[in-house]
């Protein structure tokens, strides 16, 4: 049985889709079978980030409504053969998603894949709640600024109350992924520090992705940054985060420093607790 991971944040534009693609590709490169589901019905983006927009025939809504088979809608990545995408519908809206439909799609994917990543839409409404509904684990993407952190806190509250696991009295394993971290601005006090973010959210840290032009370049060419620029600082941070998600929870998280040469020169020894 595969693991279902929701990538969520509450706030929009913090890097959910980018992170879904980068983490999913990094895990798939280790030989694990990975499916990425775009839950942003009506505003789909994951197909663009994955460079699969010209190969979309059927989508999540077609599958939940039974007009297409799951195998017809899944798009295999051209670069990593264990990586698959289930795109969202662009012409429908979130009301077209039903809980039973989502349950059945995730149930089938869980049998065939090692990891199922659900790329949540922004907000806390129906789309976001269905994306997290059947999750075993959650990656909460946060930028180091107050509004993003407060929205993440709200999402953690929902993960603890509105998911299938929470309703059974179990809990969804939660991880914080800090993205767009700018070491220079954090040092000047223009951003929340990592310690502040973790103190407010009191949830273990999965990784810190530095602000990096390579991430934008990767989006523009339609490739996860972990595939297109594997030596890039952000890509390396995503690969390490993927390892932690895969169980190497003792791998220390490096806080990017503002030295001109390399972000990862010094390890502060912060540990990602499981």
């Amino acid at each position: 049985m595969g693991k279902v991971v929701v990538v969520t944040s509450g706030k929009g534009g913090v890097g959910k889709t980018t992170s879904t693609a980068a983490l999913g590709a990094a895990i798939a490169q280790t030989g694990k079978k990975v499916a990425l589901i775009d839950f942003d019905v009506g505003l789909r983006n994951l197909d663009l980030i994955m460079g699969a927009e010209r190969r979309v025939v059927f989508d999540l809504i077609n599958v939940t409504q039974g007009t297409a088979k799951l195998s017809q809608a899944l798009i295999r990545d051209k670069r990593v053969e264990t990586l698959f995408l289930l795109p969202a519908s662009q012409t429908r809206d979130k009301d077209a998603l039903t809980e039973d439909g989502v349950a059945s799609v995730i149930g089938k994917l869980r049998e065939k894949f090692d990891y199922v990543f659900c790329d949540s839409p922004a907000g806390i409404e129906r789309g976001a709640q269905l994306a997290m509904r059947f999750a075993d684990e959650a990656v909460i993407v946060t930028n180091p600024e107050v509004s993003s952190v407060r929205d993440s806190d709200r999402i953690i509250g929902l993960l603890d109350s509105k998911t299938a696991k929470a309703e059974k009295g179990e809990s969804v394993a939660k991880h914080i992924l800090v993205t767009r971290f700018d070491a220079a601005r954090a040092a000047r006090g223009e951003m929340l520090s990592i310690a502040d973010v973790l103190e407010i959210l009191s949830t273990p840290l999965l990784g810190i992705i530095p602000e990096n032009q390579g991430v934008l370049r990767a989006s523009n060419v339609g490739a996860p940054v972990t595939l297109s620029e594997p030596t890039n600082a952000a890509a390396r941070a995503y690969v390490e985060a993927a390892k932690r998600l895969g169980g190497e929870s003792s791998l220390p998280v490096a806080v990017p420093l503002m030295e001109k040469r390399g972000f990862f020169d010094r390890l502060l020894g912060r540990r990602a607790a499981a």
Binding site: R150, D151, D153, R154, I156, D160, S202
Partner: peptide, 25 residues
Amino acid sequence: SPVRSGQSIFHPHGDVIVLGSTASG
């Protein structure tokens, strides 16, 4: 557990003790 943003705890009959933090909102 921490009280998260958007949560509301209503306890009209006594004290409330929170072992963690309470969030903005």
